[in-house]
Design a protein around this nucleic acid. Structure first.
Length: 597
DNA sequence: TCCTCTCCCACATTTGAATGGA
DNA sequence: ATCCATTCAAATGTGGGAGAGG
């Protein structure tokens, strides 16, 4: 957890709380200002109302930069952190009330995407959603004072594409669009485990949506110091000069931070080694046996875009007009509009969201024409893109969905059966924390409670699905709250309107192998048996390297069992006994407003 | 057989936590 | 108790290549 000062938070606001259970987003009056106060239905309890909680996304400007470029998040088998990190500042909590903060990542739509012609395009229907997992902040539960004292960082949350991931990372499908969410669950004794009324709220920052990839989709091109053929073909002095300008501008700072890899390299300390410098380029080049600098493709784009101003002024009718096929290509790629484009176009272009019906229609219509999937992708990067403009017709709806920039807050109340506490693997076990009575004993240091619960990506937004869920015997108020919060997550119409049967894999997954030196429990029957903390725990509790636990064929955890587990783990290294934790999703009566009991 | 697309892996580098000595 | 240097695991994007599928 970062120990940053509260004042370091620079991000925007949180919008008002909405009536829980509504699967639609109420329009927000403002995108930028601080959160409008929640529509408080319990004004006499304003101080303690969870609706009063405001969440500010940390590094929101950075997130917005990524969002405008079309955020990509690498997912790997071993798990990859998100960058930018998901950090928030929370205000409005009751300092003495205990809260649980957790995050999950849900599909933003039911499309599969592909990166084509420097744009994200719908490439078909989404693959079946992975069993959802919740990432519970390691400090949970903690008092409001604790949460408000500093930034709340979910930086150690990891994403994986390993469907059998034993480490508790959040499982995602590659080339799909996802939306992280933050849930705040009240966990004090008056509204605690076993309580009928669990107050919670969900916050969504649309700018944190991303497309998961196994490798960044803007690959490298070799930046030869000699002009490319498109320039060489025409021995025009002005073009040669233009190329010199390009070379000269290699080190220009980005006017438009538009490329994901470059944004990550520039902002992620761990990627410092890739930051641009002539020496760095040469180093990378030599590393790959090249005598000439190798510049990332996105850098080329940036430099071209950056140089556009210079070029247009300097070349006029020269290069750009002599080769009109070049400029249109760059003009639109990656949603980087030039002077005439506005932000909305940028956003729409970067993320062809499926939330906008018209856009969807265009995408599918285009796809049905069996054209766009073949366009551009096979062309060398510097080749012309004659379809670039026409593509815009299909992927830039004039009414493109522009996501609000504030977090959407959804408050709700979970009304589910709570026959067991999620902490209560052993009631009375102070380490495990168990049960309603264990709440008070759950001082933050004693409980590192990363929990990984299955979340149904689509059906959870469906009230029909909610009703259809058969409760698992180990429901907890917490999971109920999380599930309820999940159920209130607004979803675009395609998913929300698709009734889903009760999920067959309504499972819980346990964090495993998080204590140093302790192997993860691979047994799906009791995956928590030897684990004591989660991968996201603080220093000293590093997750073991996956290579320490090679999966032999046939010994893999296998498909997630119908009953899987997740548990909060004490820091003590003792094995957690099989915690009968079940986190049925979507069990909340989300049509009921939350209440503080 | 060829091509495209997606994914995996090794690599060099940087960061930051842990450790030990002064 | 504090400071500093060292060590090492974790994290990062990249290029090359494997493998599946058409």
């Amino acid at each position: 957890m970062l120990q940053e000062k509260v004042s370091a938070v620079t991000d925007g606001g949180v919008n008002a709380a909405h009536a829980p259970g509504l699967c639609e987003i109420a329009p927000e009056p403002s995108n930028l200002g601080p959160a409008a106060p929640a529509s408080d239905q319990h004004s006499n309890e304003a101080d303690q109302s969870i609706e009063n909680i405001k969440v500010f996304l940390h590094e929101r400007e950075l997130w917005k930069k990524f969002h405008e470029a079309g955020t990509e998040m690498i997912i790997t088998k071993a798990g990859r952190r998100m960058f930018p990190g998901y950090k928030v500042k929370v205000t409005g909590m009751n300092p003495k009330t205990k809260y649980i903060l957790l995050a999950d990542i849900v599909p933003a739509d039911d499309h599969r995407y592909k990166f084509c012609d420097n744009k994200w395009m719908v490439a078909g229907k989404a693959e079946p959603a992975m069993p959802g997992r919740l990432y519970v902040h390691p400090d949970s539960p903690a008092t409001g004072a604790h949460w408000m004292r500093q930034l709340v960082s979910f930086q150690k949350l990891k994403l994986t594409n390993n469907h059998l991931d034993p480490f508790g990372h959040i499982i995602l499908n590659s080339m799909h669009k996802y939306q992280p969410r933050l849930h705040i669950v009240k966990a004090d004794e008056n509204n605690g485990f076993g309580s009928k009324n669990t107050a919670y709220c969900t916050h969504v920052f649309p700018e944190t949506a991303f497309i998961s990839v196994t490798s960044y989709q803007n690959h490298k091109v070799e930046f030869h110091p000699t002009p490319p053929c498109t320039v060489q073909m025409n021995h025009d002095h002005r073009q040669a000069e233009a190329w010199q300008v390009l070379l000269r501008n290699r080190r220009l700072s980005m006017l438009s931070s538009c490329q994901i890899t470059q944004l990550k390299i520039e902002n992620n300390p761990f990627a410092k080694g890739f930051r641009g410098s002539d020496e760095g380029d040469l180093r990378l080049s030599r590393q790959h046996g090249k005598d000439y600098p190798v510049i990332s493709k996105n850098m080329v784009r940036q430099r071209l875009v950056t140089s556009h101003t210079h070029l247009t002024g300097k070349l006029g009718a020269g290069l750009l007009q002599a080769h009109p096929q070049v400029l249109p290509h760059y003009q639109y790629e990656s949603g980087i509009p030039l002077a005439n484009s506005d932000t909305q176009d940028t956003l729409a272009n970067a993320f062809p969201s499926g939330r906008e019906p018209g856009l969807l229609y265009h995408c599918f219509k285009h796809r049905d024409n069996s054209r766009h999937l073949e366009l551009g992708c096979k062309r060398p990067y510097l080749e012309t893109a004659p379809s670039a403009v026409s593509e815009e017709h299909y992927f830039r709806s004039p009414t493109s969905y522009e996501p609000p920039l504030l977090s959407h807050s959804y408050c709700g109340e979970a009304h589910g059966t709570r026959e067991a506490c999620m902490y209560g693997g052993e009631e009375g076990d102070p380490g495990v924390g168990g049960g309603p009575a264990g709440v008070d004993s759950l001082a933050p240091p004693s409980l590192n409670c990363n929990m990984w619960a299955s979340v149904q990506p689509y059906p959870r937004y469906s009230m029909q699905a909610v009703d259809a869920v058969s409760y698992q015997p180990f429901a907890t108020h917490f999971s109920s709250a999380a599930a309820a919060a999940s159920a209130t997550m607004p979803h675009h119409s395609v998913s929300a309107q698709r009734p889903q049967p009760p999920p067959p894999d309504m499972t819980i997954y346990a964090p495993v192998g998080t204590q140093r030196g302790l192997p993860p429990a691979h047994s799906s029957s009791s995956p928590c048996s030897s684990s004591s903390s989660s991968p996201a725990l603080g220093p000293g509790n590093r997750a073991p390297h996956p290579s320490l636990y090679p999966r032999k064929p046939g010994t893999s955890p296998g498909p997630l069992p119908h009953r899987d587990f997740s548990a909060f783990h004490p820091q003590s290294p003792q094995p957690v006994r099989d915690p009968p934790y079940q986190y049925p999703m979507g069990m909340s009566n989300t049509g009921v407003h939350w209440t503080d009991s």
